[in-house]
Amino acid sequence: MNAHSEMKVAAEVAAPASLGIVMNCQLEKVFYGDFLAVRNSVVPIEKNKITGFIGPSGCGKSTVLRSLNRMNDLIPIFRFEGKVTYHGQDIYDKKVDPVVVRRYIGMVFQQPNPFAMSIYDNVAFGLRLNGFKGDMDERVEKALHGAAIWNEVKDKLKNSGLSLSGGQQQRLCIARAIATEPDVLLMDEPCSALDPIATRRVEELMIELKEKYTIALVTHNMQQAMRVADTTAFFGVDISQGSRTGYLVEMGPTKKIFEEPEQQLTREYVRGEFS
């Protein structure tokens, strides 16, 4: 049995906890209004690993990522069919409050989006939201250390988060996301607005962060997936129905996806034959 089908079996047969699978996305159909955006994709997310989502634009990789903490619920016409289990609990269950889901499953966005508040207040935001009563200063410092930005901002915690450079803002957003110590961190093309040096810093940071967190990362940059992802999911676009519907083509250890993929489509994509 090869790694790819093993993964599939693991995802479908489940018993997620024993295999270290924190989340399992069993997506059947995702619609925006009448438009079928993504279909039939099973994406398990393993603990303390970075799972990279790659694929051409319009393949639904961001949509899938944003389904993992119900961010897509902000879009009124969005509709999800299927299940996303988080420690065995379906987060799309009617009883589940999406607000609570997002407190466990943090998110870092494509554009750095710090709040128009001080650096300190940005990081403390989630802690205050959760009614944290302990030593706030300590947690803020810890989060800023964790996001590898402490040395740059320690003398200006009162300054606006918006006064930082783009790369610093993104690391501030990472600090904000990890301050509450979420279980899973979703990163939606976190480096696409950053220059190469800032990108490198954030990539190093991701590798440090996976010691404590489980990360799912969407990237349009295949080199980035090769550098940081342990597991890679390749999504493709199906245009056979006259529409553009994304789906999971293949998922497996990053090395395998890039060096000896099973699917012809994956091979063409990782060779850069289309994008």
Partner: peptide, 25 residues
């Protein structure tokens, strides 16, 4: 829009997003 996303992404309810993020911004 990204500011609103950030607020919801942190797990705010709608009113928390309005009172703690949108109005201060």
């Amino acid at each position: 829009y990204k500011v609103k996303e950030a607020a919801y992404g942190m797990g705010t309810t709608r009113w928390e997003a309005i009172l703690k993020v949108m109005l201060p911004t």
